[in-house]
Nucleic acid binder design. Structure first.
Lengths: 127, 127
DNA sequence: CCGGATCCCTTTGGATACTG
DNA sequence: CAGTATCCAAAGGGATCCGG
């Protein structure tokens, strides 16, 4: 999500953006969800998420690591082994995300009902 | 965010996805933030968000309306006037989003510090 | 086993033009 | 005023190959 100059809330380093940009991509929440269950290796994460490509898994983990939400530990064995785990900050972040997920679960039926009941406003097409 | 078959958490109608897909786009949170201050007209929203295009504002509002988070009221006057306001569900949703934003504000410095301190793992480039 | 580099297709969203 | 239609550029992300 590239940010744009000149907006009410989007300033150069708006904290809200810094968080939401991460939630916006397709995999971050899933990775956090899996790591919340405990330390996992790269290949274990791949198995659990199943349809994530190694490229996106690595990228997602790099971002989370960079932000201090995930800790990466390398074992110089052969074959190599790399462990990933949530940091304390990662856990506290995930708590909030879970609360949002809880809201979603609680209101999912209401949202789906609203979608079914919805009728589009009469559009005014040009031409 | 197109969902893919066969994943641990991503099922056909995963509630988490239903929520996060909305948070992921660029404008939803901003629109919610503005509407949280009270009822607004289309053009008022445009002024407040400033760099949103009419296309994206309309699209974002349609989505929110469809999900039952925003109520749309048309006045058949001339010139036309359309009001937008959060529904009760929209307000309760925004509460959670704000809690996430609060976390972001609280930890923004820590995250930025982590980013500065971060050194990329020794890459293994081909060739 | 871990994960970077490259290629390429798909989706998102900005700019512009137009209508009821 | 309140939108919709169309076109197009940029970003996201999958597939594949490769090297430590």
């Amino acid at each position: 999500m590239t940010l744009h100059r000149q907006s009410f809330i989007i300033t150069e380093n708006c904290p809200i953006r810094d968080v939401l940009d991460r939630l916006g991509d397709r995999w971050t929440v899933l990775v956090l969800h899996e790591l919340a269950t405990g330390t996992l290796r790269f290949s274990e994460l791949r198995k659990r998420i199943a349809d994530i490509s190694p490229r996106m898994l690595a990228q997602t983990l790099r971002h989370l690591e960079q932000d201090g939400l995930v800790r990466r530990e390398v074992f110089p064995t052969v074959p190599p082994r790399v462990d990933y785990a949530l940091t304390a900050m990662g856990e506290s972040f995930f708590e909030r995300v879970e609360m949002l997920a809880q809201w979603a679960a609680d209101h999912h039926e209401a949202v789906k009902a609203a979608r079914r009941a919805y009728v589009a406003p009469a559009g005014n097409a040009p031409k």
